[in-house]
C-alpha cells in the first residue's frame, strides 16, 4: 500500500468510507447508536484508557456495531480505571470498570451483541438528569 503523507493521499480511503456509510444508512434505521464513553482523566490515561479507546474504535466497527466513541472525565472510580460508560439505545447506561482491551472484547461480544452482563459493572449511585 502506498504511504499516506498528505490529506490528499487520504482521498481513496475517504471515498471507501463514504460508500460504506451510504450503504449502511440505506439498510439501517438511523438514531440507534451505541454510545461508548471512555474516562480519560489522569487516572484513566495512566491506567491505559487510550489503548482501551483505540480498541473500541477498531473493533466495534469490525463487529458491525454502530457506535459513537467519545471521551469523558473522571467519574470518581479511579481505583477501577480504565472505566467505560456504555449506553445502548433505550437502556440505562452501564459503567464498566477495569476495561483492558481483553475486557473490551468481552463487553463487545457478550454485552453489546448478546445483552449478557459481564463482570466489572460499577453499581449506579447517581442518575444523570
Amino acid at each position: 500500500m502506498e504511504k499516506i503523507k498528505t490529506l490528499a493521499d487520504l482521498k481513496r480511503i475517504k471515498e471507501n468510507v463514504q460508500a460504506k456509510i451510504e450503504l449502511r444508512e440505506r439498510s439501517e434505521r438511523p438514531g440507534e447508536l451505541v454510545q461508548v464513553k471512555v474516562a480519560m482523566a489522569t487516572c484513566g490515561i495512566a491506567a491505559g484508557s487510550k489503548e482501551t479507546m483505540n480498541y473500541f474504535i477498531d473493533h466495534l466497527d469490525k463487529n458491525g456495531i454502530r457506535a459513537v466513541v467519545t471521551q469523558t472525565g473522571c467519574m470518581g472510580y479511579c481505583y477501577a480505571e480504565p472505566t467505560v460508560e456504555i449506553s445502548k439505545p433505550g437502556k440505562e447506561p452501564i459503567v464498566f470498570g477495569g476495561v483492558t482491551p481483553a475486557r473490551a472484547e468481552e463487553i463487545i461480544q457478550r454485552y453489546l451483541k448478546n445483552d449478557e452482563l459481564v463482570e466489572g459493572i460499577i453499581p449506579v449511585n447517581y442518575r444523570s438528569v
Binding site: 499516506i4 487520504l10 475517504k14 471507501n16 474504535i57 477498531d58 466497527d61
Partner: peptide, 15 residues
C-alpha cells in the same frame, strides 16, 4: 465523512 470513523482514524494516525 466523520473523522471518528475507524478507517479514517487509522489513516490519519499513519499520515
Amino acid at each position: 465523512v466523520p473523522l471518528d470513523d475507524p478507517e479514517i482514524v487509522a489513516a490519519l494516525r499513519e499520515m
